[in-house]
Design a protein around this nucleic acid. Sequence first.
DNA 1: AAAGGGCTCAACCGCTTACCG
DNA 2: CCGGTAAGCGGTTGAGCCCTT
Length: 296
Amino acid sequence: MGRPPCCDNGVGVKKGPWTPEEDIVLVSYIQQHGPGNWRSVPENTGLMRCSKSCRLRWTNYLRPGIKRGNFTPHEEGIIIHLQALLGNKWAAIASYLPQRTDNDIKNYWNTHLKKKVKRLQQPAAAESFQTTAAASNAVTCSPNYYSSSSSSHHSLQGMQQPMSSYPNTACSSSTPSNHETTTTTGVSDLFQTWMMRPSPLAAAAAAADNCKIAMQEFQEEQASIVCQEQMVMTGGGDVNNKSSALEMMVAPAVMGASTATFSLLEDWLLDDMPGQVAMDGLMGISAGCCADPIMF
DNA sequence: AAAGGGCTCAACCGCTTACCG
DNA sequence: CCGGTAAGCGGTTGAGCCCTT
């Protein structure tokens, strides 16, 4: 009623991979205005992209706090079990893994886990995998496996509520809708039950006997990550990937150090090699802001 | 070294839901 | 309550990379 039509069907809308220049424009706009009101983003930035594309680029790639690739066995186990509980509710599943996007989880499921689960559901294969998983668990659940989970008094609510329920986390843009939150809250109970009573699938995915320990460590790790994200958003932390790097770039800029940071942002985005030079510069910036660098 | 088949993942498409006037 | 749009979500696609032959 009175609103102009969405740009999605507009003429001259650019499609395909985003360029570093477009990323810079989008990130700098969100620095100033925050995520949301996506329809206004192409209008105000001059980007020849539809609002959907802008939102997707931000939530799946540029958003601070995203961890890419290298899914841990614990994350795999969580995804497998939440998928079994929730079905293909990727956004709801992603709410338990605040560093992961629904798209990433979905891709990982479709390319890796679905096949793995299929194999496991064949009785002949299941036994051999349990042996393998148990061996794997001996490694993944060893005391030194989590170098980052040193802080030991975090709340365990992480697995009892979707992670997005934490205030000020970087995953707000993928917060599930109300009914999904209700659903996942209910599922949390099931998930908790699963943690107490590992299924055969749990054994296959994360090794059943020590699963509780693994999950508790994971909870602590996630809680630690949330704290670290909050620190990063105020200018601290370390970086291991582009998203984390952006987290480092955006956060100080929000606090008023935009000029130098934006220059680094440009260096990083325009660099063919994922920005070691920019990283070094960022490390320099962050060094004075955080006494407890992120170790993962 | 080249070809081609498989795999990965960023991005798009279309449907649903929430919200607004 | 109704009509319309924006935002969110899950499914699908395809370009590019990697591995095998």
